[in-house]
Design a protein around this nucleic acid. Structure first.
Lengths: 145, 145
DNA sequence: CTAGGTGCTAGACCCAGGTCTAGGTCAACA
DNA sequence: TGTTGACCTAGACCTGGGTCTAGCACCTAG
């Protein structure tokens, strides 16, 4: 049986990470359990490893730095007893994500506005530039320049 | 002291960028109009510059790379006639933001789940580890978080 | 007059997060 | 039996986005 073990290449396919990156993550201690090796020293990833890595991918995508993932991994590696710490880490990231969400929404609103005004502008073959410094008639009376 | 012009330090305060970064952005062509200089070569930012920079900050916060901001700035600098291109850039970023939003929401869901299970775990003084490979010799028939 | 604060440029430095290379091992297949 | 392809380690390299330094120019206050 394949014993539910995947090679690094397969894991790369599965997670979207490159094999280089997978090895990097391991070196940096991002894995919550040591990866098994086969008879000739090749990595054999368990289903659980893959689940963990999949979470790592999400964490990364939501802006968690490698060092933080590493801290979390360490806590998990060390086994139960530190759940409160893990929870703290998770809560921090939760907050961070929520902040990002509001920022993104703000920016999206800005962009939506711009897009709408450009669309309108183009549809109308209008002349004014929706995003341009007004060709100020006379800037300031006493401006040297 | 022209009330319609701010120094680089003031702009830094206002935008949250460092003066270094402001100069960097200028060097990299991120500004949509050339910054004026006073008699002794110091930058004098107009209200419009600041508005633009504020938008840049949002763009950055939503993951737009400096090079893209630079492209947009260039289009705006070149004046009207290229609105369609600007719109394209904006639409791309709009899409990008929307993707990020869904990713973030996914990750938030994951984290929310973990947080909830840790909270429950801690509240119950439970023994099982909500996020640990089951230390069971036999492969788990049914993996759950 | 002198000092402090702010600004200027050019360019070095830094960190995160990958990505790629060199040189080697292994197993399978034609 | 030799070639291929996936894998191994160690370590160099690259990009993006800042951040900091050196050395100098102004202005204003004391």
């Amino acid at each position: 049986m394949a014993d539910s073990g995947l090679s690094i290449g397969q894991v790369a396919q599965h997670t979207g990470l490159s094999v280089h990156t997978l090895r990097l993550y391991e070196r940096e201690g991002l894995l919550a359990s040591e990866v098994r090796r086969d008879g000739s020293g090749r990595r054999v990833y368990s289903a659980w490893d893959i689940e963990w890595l999949t979470n790592c991918v999400r964490f990364r995508a939501s802006g968690m730095p490698l060092t933080t993932i590493g801290r979390l991994a360490k806590l998990v590696r060390e086994g139960s007893g530190n759940e409160a710490e893990r929870l703290k880490l998770l809560r921090e990231h939760q907050r961070h994500i929520i902040e990002q969400l509001t920022q993104l929404r703000d920016c999206l609103a800005l962009i939506d506005g711009k897009v709408a005004s450009y669309e309108q502008h183009l549809a109308a073959g209008a002349s004014g530039d929706p995003w341009q410094q007004q060709p100020q008639p006379a800037p300031a009376p006493d401006e040297r320049d």
